[in-house]
Amino acid sequence: MTQSVTQPDRNAGGFNLFGFARSQEGVVVFLLVALMIVVAVFSAASPYFFDVRNGMNIGRAISIIGIASAFTTLLMIAGGLDLSIGAVMNAAGVVAAMVLTQTNLGVGGAIVAAVAVGALVGWVNGMFIAKLGINPLIMTIAMQFVVRGLTLGFSASASKVIVDPTFLAIGQSYFHIGPLAIPAPLLWMLLTMLVLWFVLRFTLFGKYVYAVGGKASACRRAGINVNVITIQLYMLSGIGAALAGVVLAAIQGAGIPYGAGSELSVISAVILGGVSLAGGIGLIEGTLVAVLLVGVLKNGMTLMGISSVFQMVAEGLVLVGAVTLDRLKRRL
């Protein structure tokens, strides 16, 4: 064997523009360009838009969807789907608030209890989906009902006000880095994404996430325990939703058992970011830029005084545009 052959070979043949446009990295670059255009337009349209404090407002506003989206990115790359995350968010916020007000387990106990609820819901989802082959859509909708009902029942539908300053700091404090005051929720979101980016890119688990999404049967035949991976991913999804719920409760200053139905916003952000519904393809970077893009759109439109009703329309159109482009570029 000669030296030259045993070198790990790099991408042969130089840069290929069409190939790049079709790749997952291409999607991220495209979204970044779209984001920059949108930022430029709003900066011209509103004097309040291009401003550090407004940037931080956007960061805080997207953090909840961002945290949940990061976990959902992993699940959807592996071909899964979780529609119970909105219900888990509510449940986690209420559980945290109840632990804080009715026990002396403190902030740590509240977070652990909330995360445990998320993990449990995810485990149930994962068991039924992996072991019995129940369709994820059906299973997680069913769990959404179960969790919502239990949350309303256990809380007697009453919102629980949280006064513990340490807990509130999770959602309401700022980290000062130089002249920047970064809202804590934004930091949690960025940390979450950084960790999951690392997992996806560098670890065996991350490789299996892509592999299972690519072809689960091939993974099984290669000796990978696909069921375990699937269950772990649904548990992670539940944990992610619970963490998002904790931060949401801290931002709100209350655990509110009703109202939130974030699952579709989360899933649409993940798809906008380039994750294929069929699984196997996607990057955390894409999800980050997609969440930013939606957040900037909403914020900019609010500053321009556009009704939230039309903001919904815009959000829908952006998603349609993104998936249409995704279809078209395959013909390149």
């Binding site: 690519g214 072809k215 993974c219 035949r221 196997g280």
Partner: peptide, 21 residues
């Protein structure tokens, strides 16, 4: 297997080492 059981979204190396990384 007849259908080869490869993950098409992964690289040649990933598939060679699949399950034995």
């Amino acid at each position: 297997y007849q259908d080869l059981a490869l993950c098409e979204n992964l690289s040649v190396m990933d598939n060679i080492f699949l399950g034995h990384e």
